[in-house]
Design a protein around this nucleic acid. Structure first.
Lengths: 327, 327
DNA sequence: CTGAAAGCGCTTACAG
DNA sequence: CTGAAAGCGCTTACAG
């Protein structure tokens, strides 16, 4: 690997000058510029990013920490983040924490030792906040609010509104007996959506019928079974996300229900998965791509010394497909 | 951020000594060790990985380049890679190329400038080989053989055997009129599986009925429609992967077919998706976790100067679920 | 066992 | 406009 010295020698200039033409960081005599460019070509020189990062104290790396891949929501977010990251000349480092607090901690520490420019954190562990506070690099929390205010910013969908939309839609579809499979109330996302649901119930004077369920396929299966026992007359189900909606669907089918004829179903997230299944899933969309992009931009803006908004909420929209039918 | 100098000063030793106790790279007087450890504690010192990487010419980063996330196969591989990477004290950088050759090139170059320890490449672009050849860091190609032999190694499933298994299984399930939706023949994976299928046809004296299809949900929908027109009597379909199997399933359902009663269906990969759908998908499994792990290990072994096997083929196994029924 | 020195490969004040 | 020098924060021969 040719170094900047080799190029300088070949071009008959100093390394400083090579650096300057390479980075366009100062005016350089035209003739010398030509020679340098030529020498770079000649030697196949590629600047060593590590050396650059050491001096600049920025590695142009953005670290993403996500709980898992079982939920495509995180995968799609990671994809959106990667896209923006690449466009801006940064790299994305990805870590799947599997909800393991220790792994999350370790990853944050590592990122901090690597001089990452920022961390995009998706987590289910409230306890992570101390690590966030002392890691010394900007952290954007996505899809959740953690108690700490030490993070640079948070990015989330308008969950409250989402809860309202889901419940309102099932009512408009003529459901008389709606059950809400809500997410774990320890998560702000689930709490907010639940509030939206409650307010709709209040408004329409509907009974509140709720079951809590982890955001996972496996738990979805279990909770759906329980739901059918507890609420045999159910004719509309709000699932806490698309993945759970799919497990609910599976259980309903096993029990011989037709969807949407017997029971209508709505999910949350609008993950690609929802269009794969048959019938296709009605759901409340989170603008995942936008949320991912924004997370990256917040970090880069901050790095460039621009002011950054702490709260970033994104509107949510109803996607009507085949598991509900408007009356 | 405290630096190694700060620690040294506080402990009354030289930076070299701090480095030595921190890395256990030489014997250090017990008393001094104690003082250093204490000083590290005191200052909250964390070694700067960038500085370390600069000296060592290894950033402990493994770069993964994958085509997209629409196919969970890549996501699951990335997850497996990340797991191993973390265990070994390395980090994973992830890039989704979207099959864009230029983005692949750019990513490889970037990884090389970052002093990555290796690249795990999943690609559909043969043309990438020149970049692989000149990037100067070890590349492991996964799920495909590219023409170049310049890569460190390749890792793939036994596709030929997979083709045999899929065809053989449908025959055992009593299918008389099997159609093989094979993958693009420009990919070695698809070619190998096709060979397996052909050999089974020959052995059982079955007619060869084939349609080519990109590994994507959208193309799966299109090809499935064409298939039903071209082979109205079909009673068994081999899909080129699980994602395509799902689109085929969707089209069959639309046309009123029952699965597996009217038409049996088998996929390839054994991606988590296959258990989400109802009925659950019969498929040929690739040992994704193992393949991911191995890719990482090949790179690390190489970095440590151990010899590395160039060809790495993994056995494939039939996963019987609900879209086929043994006779 | 331990420290001073050199070096990893860049970048950027500082002079001129 | 341009070069010599110092520095980013470590690690490791080299002496002692």
């Amino acid at each position: 690997m040719a170094s900047i010295r080799d190029v300088a020698r070949l071009a008959g200039v100093s390394p400083a000058t090579v650096s300057r033409v390479m980075n366009g960081t100062a005016n350089v005599d035209a003739e010398k510029t030509r020679k340098v460019l030529h020498a770079i070509e000649e030697t196949g020189f590629k600047p060593n990013e590590v050396a650059r990062a050491l001096y600049k104290k920025s590695s142009k790396i953005i670290g993403v920490i996500a709980p898992d891949i079982d939920n495509p929501y995180f995968t799609e977010l990671a994809k959106a983040i990667e896209g923006e990251t690449y466009k801006q000349g940064y790299r994305m480092t990805l870590c799947y924490s599997e909800n393991n607090l220790e792994k999350e901690r370790e990853s944050i520490r590592m990122l901090s030792r690597m001089n990452a420019d920022g961390i995009i954190l998706m987590t289910n562990n409230e306890e992570i906040e101390e690590e966030v506070e002392r890691c010394g690099i900007p952290v954007v929390v996505v899809d959740r609010r953690i108690h700490s205010d030490k993070e640079l910013a948070y990015v989330e969908a308008e969950h409250y509104e989402g809860g309202r939309i889901a419940a309102g839609h099932l009512i408009q579809c003529g459901c008389r007996n709606i059950v809400n499979i809500c997410g774990p109330q320890k998560y702000s996302s689930a709490r907010d959506r639940y509030q939206g649901y409650l307010d709709v119930c209040r408004h329409y004077q509907r009974e509140v019928q709720c079951m809590e369920c982890e955001y996972s396929f496996e738990e979805g299966l279990i909770v759906a079974e329980q739901l059918l026992k507890k609420y045999p007359g159910v004719d509309g189900i709000i699932a806490c996300n698309d993945v759970v909606a799919i497990s609910v669907y599976k259980v309903l089918l096993r029990h011989g229900y037709k969807i949407p004829e017997d029971i209508q179903l709505i999910g949350f997230d609008n993950v690609a998965l929802g269009r794969l299944m048959t019938p296709e899933l009605t759901t409340v969309e989170q603008p995942i791509v936008n949320m991912g992009k924004t997370s990256v931009r917040l970090i880069i803006d901050h790095a460039k010394g621009r002011p950054v908004q702490h709260e970033n909420r994104f509107p949510v929209t109803l996607i009507r497909r085949e598991t509900t039918v408007l009356k």
